[in-house]
Design a protein around this nucleic acid. Structure first.
Lengths: 215, 215
DNA sequence: CGGTAAGCTGACGTCATGACAGGACAAGTG
DNA sequence: CACTTGTCCTGTCATGACGTCAGCTTACCG
């Protein structure tokens, strides 16, 4: 499944090589959280990893390539976001619970990976297909589950016919992602995180079911 | 109001100078729509404007500085977004109309300025105060109006007490912005723009009033 | 111990950056 | 018309990052 790790010039990476490679990824990841993406230089990453720029280019074609690698690793973890929705109910008190847990889990995931997610978001917005697909991969699990929930409620006649489940789900997920990446913005705008969450959950619940939650 | 335009070394720019300056801004703006932010180089902008890099540095400290300038111009135009909400009603059919027009106007504005808004978003997400403030400035008009609407309905008892108007408004605006910058994402996901808008309007209406719109 | 492939780096040509000094040019003055 | 003044632009340069290559070192294996 996971094809052998290879250097740019085609050699197979051994134990030591993989270690250096991983160290470079870790350092890049760290740099991304502490300085603007635009200012991240190969030479700094290499220095931080205690190696030389040439070594970096042995494992990655460029900074973007390495970022994609990190993002790919993260996307794998992101699949676990599905659990936030699998088999959950949207009826009554359980529905409110579901909405809250979704918001909680989502914000937490985003907070933990914010640096790399920012870059993925930018790449996707700029139209880069690779980043765009990656973003889909990360969001798809949540997105699909949400859309399914809406479609299901719709089939039961509890949601209007003219609602497009995919559009609603996509919009809600986009909202969660956007709020997550601008969390600091909210807090210095006078809205505390603790206040933010229930209001987000409310919006999610409203969007999915069309009704206010019963708490 | 608009203090005199000055060069980096403090001289006042005359007619000709302002023209070159503007030309540089226009070219930068154009480059931002056609290539990734990370790859925009001063030398390319200068070449495109038919001048030299040295000239660029006479008017702007760096690329970021020029971007801020463009964004500032755009923020001024963005103030007109307030009109989308000023004096509008959220009751009955008029409410549905209001929601639709808000979504329409917002998406249009974002589409028209997407390149520069992407960069502002990234800068804000990375924690740069200048970009962060700018983003606020652009969104504040809509944000405040929305929050006011919610607060008003809340005072009338038509919205639950435990709703935080600022949090809801902020989340809805964030949603609109996020969906706008990933419009292409939706379309290639199987959701057409025409379908997207009414669903967004529905979510906005639900969020503000807590009820489904009457159409 | 010798061979082979992996792993790393010094050194190099290329190019963007950012600063400066000085040339070009328009406008006003005697 | 020559001269001055202040704006505007560019040639040039030192610095430093980029990305490549040849070649050195290290590890593994028979």
């Amino acid at each position: 499944m996971t094809g052998q790790v290879r250097t740019v010039d085609g050699r197979v990476a051994g134990r030591r090589g993989q270690a250096t490679r991983q160290k470079l990824l870790d350092c890049l990841s760290e740099m991304l959280s502490s300085s603007p993406y635009r200012d991240v230089k190969v030479i700094d990453v290499a220095r931080k990893a205690g190696t030389s720029p040439a070594t970096f280019y042995q494992y990655f074609p460029d900074v973007e390539g390495a970022v994609l690698e990190i993002a790919e690793q993260m996307a794998a973890e992101g699949a676990s976001l599905t659990e936030l929705l699998e088999g959950r109910s949207w009826a009554g008190k359980a529905g409110w619970q579901t909405a809250q847990e979704l918001v909680d889990g989502f914000l937490e995931f985003w907070r933990k990976n914010d640096a790399i997610l920012r870059v993925v978001d930018l790449g996707a917005a700029e139209g880069d297909k690779r980043f765009y697909k990656l973003r889909m991969k990360i969001l798809n699990s949540v997105n699909n589950s949400l859309a399914d929930s809406v479609a299901e409620l719709q089939a039961k006649g509890r949601v209007d016919k003219d609602v497009n489940p995919a559009a609603v789900a996509g919009s809600l997920v986009a909202m969660l992602a956007a709020v997550a990446s601008h969390q600091k913005g909210f807090s210095s705008w006078g809205v505390k995180q603790a206040e933010l969450k229930p209001n987000l959950a409310l919006l999610v619940h409203l969007g999915v079911t069309g009704r206010k939650p019963t708490r």
